[in-house]
């Protein structure tokens, strides 16, 4: 997957916020990570440590990750159910007509900065 690419996008966005708000140092960044976003927290952390050292604004910034649980909606019976343990087939009615309604997000929630 593209964890390093994601880290670069996060850094670029925060550097932009930093310029707009005249920030000098960022101490931490909180990401909201969907359970089935495909990005692996451990890999993100590795890439993070490598990449932030090379920035001026946030060389020691910590990465905090909050997980957003994945939820699937069933078009067959109209119910929602947790995606990860159940998968694509509705556990209630057995329908395959299901789609993900939450859990694919990678959002920058907030930063702690001076």
């Amino acid at each position: 997957m593209h964890e390093l690419g994601i880290v670069f996008y996060v850094i670029n966005t925060i550097e932009q916020v930093g310029r707009e708000q005249g920030l000098q140092n960022v101490a931490s960044v909180t990401l909201e990570l969907g359970e089935v976003s495909g990005a692996i927290p451990h890999e993100l952390e590795n890439c993070w440590d490598w990449a932030v050292k090379r920035t001026e604004l946030m060389p020691t910034a910590r990465l905090r990750i909050e997980t957003i649980p994945a939820v699937t909606h069933c078009g067959g019976c109209g119910q929602d159910y947790p995606t990860v343990p159940q998968g694509r087939i509705c556990p209630r009615c057995g329908s395959e007509n299901t789609w993900l309604i939450r859990g694919n997000e990678i959002n920058i929630k907030e930063i702690e900065a001076i």
Binding site: Y9, Q21, E110
Partner: peptide, 12 residues
């Protein structure tokens, strides 16, 4: 002191 700044934006 450090302050919390809400960004609330998708990485993409």
């Amino acid at each position: 002191s450090y302050k919390i700044i809400e960004v609330k934006e998708s990485v993409f």
